[in-house]
């Protein structure tokens, strides 16, 4: 018997993002569509940044996870439209990012507070950071630099 699509979503929610392993690929909002087409499982994945080297690994990880659950026939489609937006990050994912030390994205264009000491006295170091999805910020109170998951 084929597993239900709802069950597959819960499995995918256990596949970690390779760069930020505290959140899943579902938290990240890049899994856009899961459906059976006969005996083939169709999965649509939307890349975060067009040059992000993690994208290929993510597709491979999804395929491996589904194979491990006994689904042999998986077709992964890379879907670029509509483009990925940080609005698709789950609430659960946002909270996990904060706990991990990465300030979650905000429409205001900067972090709400320092993920370590929660001070709101923060300044931007650079629009770019250690991965395409992050910017570098600094807390003016605890003086620690931190990553901000930038809004796109």
């Amino acid at each position: 018997m084929k597993p239900s699509v709802a069950e597959i979503w819960t499995w995918l929610d256990e596949v970690p993002d390779p760069e930020i392993p505290v959140i899943s690929v579902v938290d990240l909002g890049i899994v856009r569509h899961v459906a059976w087409d006969g005996d083939t499982l169709e999965v649509a994945v939307t890349p975060t940044y067009s040059g992000c080297p993690a994208t290929r690994i993510i597709s491979l990880d999804i395929e491996t996870a589904l194979h491990d659950r006994g689904i042999g026939d998986v077709h992964i489609e890379t879907r670029i439209s509509p483009p990925w937006t940080t609005d698709w990050l789950s609430e659960k994912g946002r909270a996990k990012l904060m706990d991990y030390g990465i300030a979650p994205p905000r429409a205001a264009g900067g972090p709400e507070c320092c993920p370590r000491c929660k001070s709101t006295n923060v300044t931007r170091i650079s629009q770019f950071g250690s991965t395409p999805c992050k910017a570098q910020w600094r807390c003016a109170d605890c003086l620690e630099p931190f990553d901000y998951f930038k809004c796109i």
Partner: peptide, 20 residues
């Protein structure tokens, strides 16, 4: 270092766009 990272990220975006 920050400029190095910013330039590398910019290059990465541009190469990704090239693939498309």
């Amino acid at each position: 270092l920050e400029e190095d990272i910013a330039l590398a990220n910019t290059a990465l975006d541009l190469i990704g766009q090239t693939q498309m």
